[in-house]
């Protein structure tokens, strides 16, 4: 089975990009951007992961079946996050019985 051959130059380029982005993540970590810190860090992480998946894992050149397998892992990740968030995001909906102090409304969380 002949796989797609990727030039060493491209591999090197991606490797350097990954190193640079790691540097960027670290640098941004020292700047206080409020909630944008986490958003930028995650965006960089997704960009880096995409590079690894597309080139190092050859998903860019892969056939339908490997792509389907990979897509299913994303679906499963979505299941993990969605159902976990169904707990985390709805915890504050609970109304405590009368006379009980709610941790979530008293600001102690």
């Amino acid at each position: 089975m002949a796989g797609h051959i990727v030039s060493i130059k491209l591999y090197a380029l991606i490797f350097i990009t990954l190193l640079v982005m790691t540097g960027v993540t670290t640098a941004v970590g020292y700047v206080d951007l409020g909630r944008w810190n986490i958003i930028i860090a995650l965006a960089i992480a997704i960009f880096k992961a995409s590079l690894v998946i597309l080139f190092f894992m050859h998903m860019k050149y892969a056939g339908k079946l490997p792509r389907l397998v990979f897509a299913s892992t994303l679906l499963w990740l979505a299941i993990l996050i969605t159902l976990t968030m169904s707990d985390v995001l709805t915890r504050s909906w609970d109304h405590p019985p009368q006379g009980w102090q709610s941790l979530s409304t008293s600001g102690q969380r």
């Binding site: 159902l83 169904s86 707990d87 985390v88 995001l89 709805t90 915890r91 909906w93 609970d94």
Partner: peptide, 9 residues
């Protein structure tokens, strides 16, 4: 301590 709404699902 999981949300009861998640519990229902």
């Amino acid at each position: 301590g999981q949300s009861m709404y998640a519990g229902m699902v």
